[in-house]
Simulated scan of single mutants.
Amino acid sequence: MTAYILYLGAALAEIGGCFAFWAWLRMDKSIWWLVPGVGSLIVFAYLLTLVDSEHAGRAYAAYGGIYILCAIFWLWLAEGTAPDRWDIIGVAICLAGSAVILLGPRGGG
């Protein structure tokens, strides 16, 4: 469960940091939006290092499902566009894949 909390924090930090760049380049916001954006991306990278995993690639792959869930919530809450059934189905598939990667038994083969 701790990994999912770390993934949630990392996803919020990554989306916030990336949105700062989006706002600057696509919404004509001040370049100063990049200061908290870069800080947020640093927090994102740090949080991923706290996940208990022997391999970075596996931690990042499992994180992908949580990121997608958070991105859809961002679409809904921050951008005012409700997710459609395809968004919800896609999130469910990604979360299932994330759970398999994160929680699957590891061992001899």
Rank of each mutant, 00 (worst) to 15 (best):
M1V: 15
T2D: 08
T2N: 11
A3N: 09
A3S: 14
I5L: 13
I5P: 01
L6W: 05
L6Y: 07
Y7H: 05
L8Y: 04
G9I: 00
A10V: 03
A10M: 06
A11F: 05
A13R: 01
E14K: 02
G16W: 03
G16R: 04
G17C: 04
C18P: 01
A20N: 03
A20G: 07
F21L: 06
W22K: 02
W22Q: 08
A23V: 03
L25R: 06
R26P: 00
M27P: 01
M27E: 12
D28N: 12
K29I: 09
S30P: 04
I31G: 15
W32H: 13
W33G: 02
W33E: 01
L34Y: 00
L34G: 02
P36C: 15
G37N: 08
G37L: 04
G37Q: 07
G39H: 04
L41W: 10
I42M: 09
I42D: 02
V43G: 09
V43L: 15
A45S: 13
Y46P: 10
L47D: 05
V51R: 00
V51P: 02
V51L: 13
V51E: 07
D52F: 11
E54N: 13
A56Y: 11
A56G: 08
G57Q: 09
G57M: 07
G57F: 06
R58W: 15
A59Q: 04
Y60N: 09
Y60T: 14
Y60R: 09
A62R: 00
A62Y: 01
A62D: 03
Y63C: 04
Y63R: 11
Y63M: 08
G64R: 00
G64P: 04
Y67Q: 08
I68R: 00
I68P: 00
I68A: 12
L69Y: 12
C70P: 01
A71D: 00
A71H: 01
F73E: 00
F73Y: 08
W74M: 05
L75V: 07
L75P: 01
L75S: 02
W76M: 10
W76T: 06
A78N: 07
E79R: 00
G80W: 07
G80N: 08
G80C: 12
D84P: 05
D87S: 11
I89R: 09
G90F: 05
V91M: 07
C94D: 10
L95P: 06
L95I: 13
A96L: 11
A96D: 07
S98I: 06
A99I: 09
A99R: 00
L103K: 12
L103Y: 15
G107M: 06
G107R: 09
G108M: 14
